[in-house]
């Protein structure tokens, strides 16, 4: 992904590189129900999430597992008055549409963790497009790779994490 943003990037896409987009605030405060559901899904018995005394001693009270970052800003699947389903990582879907690539997968994901996320926090995010590759053919099809950073902050503006996604939008190889 180093040979990016060269010859064939349309101006409108090139203009988005490095721009903060889709600043949005989570639709609900961080809550322990999801923390327990997540821990249950991977059988995570870390006492920080199950034992309030341990959480008080080690993390000054309950926190969320750091890897749950993206959970807190995923939109509700439905909400009253909404005319279409809101998509997380909208920049990714914008690029699929812009380049007319019907399928997509995520290939790389880097997460850096800062301030712990706590029940009651409201997390805000912004998406920044970092790069878009030239068209490439892989075993699943032909398309482009792109890198999108998602920055997460709590209600006090403190950075809680930065997540960097590499997506691959593609057209299926003819079988």
């Amino acid at each position: 992904m180093t040979d990016v943003q060269q010859t064939d990037l349309p101006d409108d896409v090139a203009a988005l590189l490095g721009t903060r987009q889709y600043e949005q605030t989570g639709e609900f405060p961080v809550e322990r129900g999801y923390i327990w559901t997540s821990c249950a899904s991977v059988e995570n018995g870390n006492p920080l999430y199950w034992d309030d005394d341990a959480a008080a001693a080690i993390t000054d009270g309950p926190i969320a597992p750091p890897t749950m970052l993206s959970v807190w800003f995923r939109p509700h699947h439905w909400a009253p008055g909404r005319t279409k389903v809101a998509l997380p990582l909208q920049v990714h879907f914008d690029l699929k549409e812009r380049f007319e690539l019907p399928e997509a997968v995520m290939t790389d994901n880097t997460i850096v963790f800062y301030e712990p996320v706590r029940p009651g926090d409201v997390i805000s995010t912004a998406q920044v497009l970092q790069s878009v590759s030239a068209e490439k053919t892989t075993k699943i099809g032909t398309g482009r790779f792109w890198v999108i950073d998602v920055e997460y902050r709590n209600q006090r503006g403190e950075l809680v994490g930065v997540e960097s996604y590499t997506g691959y939008g593609y057209r299926k190889a003819e079988s």
């Binding site: 997540s38 994901n109 880097t110 997460i111 963790f113």
Partner: peptide, 22 residues
């Protein structure tokens, strides 16, 4: 990501604090 976290903190115990995962 949650599986990797659980795997690593099973090893470190609760004072282990993730800094970065790729």
């Amino acid at each position: 990501a949650a599986w990797f976290e659980r795997y690593l903190t099973d090893w470190t115990g609760p004072k282990g604090r993730l800094g970065r995962m790729k």
